[in-house]
């Protein structure tokens, strides 16, 4: 009854299947490849698509980083790292530069990724057209025919109603001039990081059973109109209260003691890195 533990949890047959779907996804950028998603020891909706990609890709020489909404120590990131560590024994890191495999929920790290890295994004809702078409059989046809007027109309209606587009995270993008794709709910701020990314970006939706990809150096355009250009979240005039960073995605905090709103880096390892370097400088400065 007691089974031998498997390297990276999944049996080898399953991994092979997932890698085959991944290769197809890389070959057709932005196209959602259906795959027979396995049940994982984590709940559906908690990153099982990303986790299956990670398990199918991870080898003994990999170094893994997992972030959840920007944080390395967030509940779910910790739980995923624990599982991969327990089943593979590979090292984990918080430093973006050190990782060969990065699994992330809803953020792309602030440090630019390189061609030696793979970014795996967890996807809750892979279908960008689902908001206006509930049937899978219909959205599949719409993609096949590049029939995206619904996606444009959605944005147009927002402009008519509110004077601007009101997408939050998951603002749809056009991949390689062909497929409209849900970039997973990364903030609009991160959309431009996908464009001509040096790293391979893989997106996995476990519950919806889809894998799709943005291969390196692929053109990614966020859907927008000429007279209403695409805009990321605005953090102008704001900086991190710890490391002072500007031009990064910031978390907003309400400080109870002062009743003031303050900001801090959302990418925690980037922030810690900057703080470390500042400290180093101070130390060096002090010894002189």
């Amino acid at each position: 009854m007691k089974a031998e533990p498997q390297f990276a949890f999944l049996d080898e047959g399953s991994k092979k299947e997932i890698r085959r779907a991944t290769l197809k996804a890389v070959a057709i950028p932005g196209y959602q490849v259906p795959f027979a998603s396995r049940e994982m020891p984590m709940a559906r909706g908690w990153g099982t698509g990303g986790l299956q990609l990670t398990c199918s890709l991870v080898g003994k020489d990999d170094v893994l980083k997992v972030i959840d909404q920007g944080a390395d120590e967030s509940v779910n990131a910790v739980s995923i790292k624990k599982l991969i560590r327990a089943t593979t024994g590979i090292p984990v890191t918080e430093r973006t530069e050190e990782a060969s495999l990065i699994q992330s929920r809803h953020r792309i790290p602030e440090v630019p990724l390189t061609k030696d890295q793979i970014l795996v994004l967890q996807v809750p809702m892979p279908e960008p057209l689902r908001k206006y078409e509930k049937k899978e059989s219909v959205t599949k046809r719409l993609h096949a025919e590049s029939e995206y007027s619904g996606a444009w109309l959605m944005l147009f209606e927002q402009i008519m109603k509110y004077g601007r587009t009101t997408t939050g995270a998951d603002h749809p993008v056009l991949v390689n001039g062909r497929y409209v794709m849900a970039p997973s709910p990364i903030p609009r701020f991160d959309n431009p990081k996908m464009d001509h990314s040096e790293a391979l970006i893989l997106l996995g939706a476990g519950r919806e059973k889809k894998i799709y990809a943005v291969p390196p150096y692929t053109e990614i355009r966020s859907l927008a109109f000429e007279d209403h250009p695409f805009e990321g979240e605005d953090f102008s005039g704001k900086s991190c209260r710890f490391c002072g960073a500007t031009g990064v995605f910031l978390d907003e905090l309400y400080i109870q003691e002062t009743g003031m709103t303050e900001h801090q880096c959302n990418d925690t390892s980037h922030c810690a890195d900057r703080l470390g370097r500042q400290e180093e400088k101070e130390v060096q400065h002090a010894t002189i």
């Binding site: 509940v75 509110y162 709910p185 959302n266």
Partner: peptide, 28 residues
Amino acid sequence: VESTGFISHLKMPHYVTFQSKLDSVRNT
């Protein structure tokens, strides 16, 4: 596994996605 998983994922932090929506709401 699918229904209970996706319902329970609502308990995960949604700080970034919510911040993003907040930005839109404030702008409108």
